[in-house]
Design a protein around this nucleic acid. Sequence first.
RNA 1: GCGCCUGUAGCUCAGUUGGAUAGAGCAUCUGCCUUCUAAGCAGAGGGUCGUGGGUUCGAUUCCCGCCAGGCGCACCA
Length: 596
Amino acid sequence: MLPHKQIELRLQQAARAVLPDADVTAVLVRPCPDPKFGDYQSAAIMALAKARKLNPRQLAADVVARLDVSPWCEPVEIAGAGFLNFRLRPGVLGETLHAALRGEHLFFATTTQPRTVVVDFSSPNVAKPMHVGHIRSTILGDSLARLFRLLGHRVVTDNHIGDWGTQFGMLLVGWKTMLDRAALDRDAIAELERIYRAINAQCDPAKPTYNLATHEAARAELVKLQQGDPENLALWREMIRLSQIQFDAIYGRLGVKFDHALGESFYNLRLPALVAELMAQGIARESDGAKCVFSDGALPPREDPFLIQRDGEWQANPQLIQKRDGGYNYATTDLATIAHRLETWQPQAIVYVTDGRQQLHFQQLFATFRRWHPELTGPVKLAHVWFGSILGDDGKPLKTRSGENVKLADLLDEAEARAFTVVSEKNAALPEAERRAIARVIGLGAVKYADLLPNRQSDYVFNWDKILALNGNTAPYLQYAYARIQSIFRKGEIPKSALGQPSGEIRLATPEEIALARHLLNFGLVLDAAAEEYRPNYICTYLFELASHFSRFFENCPVLKAEPAERASRLALCDLTARVLAHGLDVLGIETVPNM
RNA sequence: GCGCCUGUAGCUCAGUUGGAUAGAGCAUCUGCCUUCUAAGCAGAGGGUCGUGGGUUCGAUUCCCGCCAGGCGCACCA
């Protein structure tokens, strides 16, 4: 067990000994913000004292009196208003690194309570190009899935593709009246997008291009499709097939894999019974011809997602599950989707990665489902992991259905092209094929990292230079640190087999070595925090700091020219840093290269 | 109108149970490649954490008011 976990465990035991009824799960040990205070600290005693109106320093003294962490730490210091400062004994750091080198851990522990987690992300629409609006869900969702897997959970990824709905009425009209076959053969998605836009413009009563006849035709084609008309079904399947080719290409480039891709249409057959059940149970009722879920009054109005305040009064804010015309909408499909996932995979959590504008929808969705199936949802955590809007340089949101969006494929092309320019400048001697291969990893890494680095709830300002930057706090900086380590191993002709079998103890002498080693130990803390809050940006920050520590070490501590014992220790530090960098980047879906 | 979110350095943003001197990247300026990859390192300047109160030993963090901006509020998803 890692030193900070040992300390935390002992501290919790000591706190419980002093305050038997205290909830000690919040008694945590953190790395010190400043090394001068020590290696780890806890501010938890002050919080406990606060809650009980005790003197924090006295409580700290009482806890410390019951605390024995002598195998790992120097005597514990009580500082300030009641901080506990822990300083690792000489040798503990080196011993911990040694254990990692032997393969006992990589500074993190897999969970003792594995859970099944369904991760729902990406969810592109059929017949539309994937664009920047899909990047966050795809990259964030993939990263979370990788993170849960690394920590030992069973993960089921499911791509809830938009393959059903009113847009197909318009697409069918477009296909039948204005399809350009040659254009379809050249670029199917572009042609589908063209006909969709053209027809859509005629179906929006707010637009001057509105055409009542086209609008009615679209409605009629949709009804035919929903009723199983063979021709429309065949065309619909063809559109899905053409779209899937595009999805596969993008996901292939991004290295994103799904265990399942059960689109909206997969749930069609369940919907009538679902609505009937909700009606029969009194959860839903008819309103203005539509069927809706209303508040059951179980929650206070402020917390009730089915109520809204208008003009000082609480009014109904229902969730629609069947339209007046008999059609279903995404609330209905999403309810069926939860039911299917619970039946099929028995997960302990379902995580939805979508933008923040859907918060109300998910609040209603989860609330409705819990009313529908209270027996199923007790142990299941339904989580909406939302992220901010994508903004243009003008600060306004990029609209999905108007104006030109940056296509994801073009973005990835541009990223690789820019990276190729830089790789060629830095390393002109390499054969072009190798430079291309490196540029692919660097370019895609830069895009993913730029997307994962900000707090997900911040709005995302789309800016080519920022997303494709290769300097500063970017993936290339981390990949560069990794490549420099591999370069040391190459220059020193250190075989891989020699790295895993350390001889002698690990000695840490210089400030740069110690800082690097200390930081390595925090990997698991960061992984746990990122998983707990669904925030891979914690991992980005950690890895950037790790690479920074390594860069300082690299500048100040020669490895290959060091004396034998020192050289062995430094090689070990290099090896462990490389392993943590590679693992951390892999969680972010970012590859490494041995040379760049 | 109601709800959610945002406001931190010139710009873009971090900031882990409230905690110790508020951080990073970019940009600007100054140094460092005959030594393991300079996509780097060292250093400098740059802040009323939107604003006014409150709680606290202690508030960027929690609570309330206000200002500014974004998003959402039943037959799109």
